[in-house]
Amino acid sequence: MYLTVDFEDKRPLYQQVVDGIKELIARGTLREGATLPSVRQVAGDLGVNLNTIATAYRQLQEEGLVAVRHGFGAVVKARRSDFAGQDELRKGLRAALTQLVLAGLAEKEIVTMVREELAVVGGKAK
């Protein structure tokens, strides 16, 4: 089970870590009760500052997905995020769809793309 990071991605590194772990949870690769390595281990392996990974773990904790154990790693707590209500989720979806429309994609292409991504991310999450 690996967390992938792209150093040329426009997203900040901590956000890539958050998104990567969320994706693994959504796919069911990381199940409830699974342990994540310590902040020190992930930061050391990636060669980044401890705070970068600590920030990512904190955000995942705030969203109710993991419980951080100080000095150890973190435990996957749930497969559902705490705070995103319907309106909040819709805003995120709209922003992503807007990007696709502005990129010039036709409706059909967007639907296909969404289906493909859903199959990858949410395949086991139903």
Binding site: M1, Y2, T4, V5, D6, P37, S38
Partner: peptide, 13 residues
């Protein structure tokens, strides 16, 4: 030449 995309294991050592 460092790879642009890297992966770390999420298994605790």
């Amino acid at each position: 030449q460092r790879p642009q995309r890297v992966a770390v294991s999420l298994e605790e050592r």
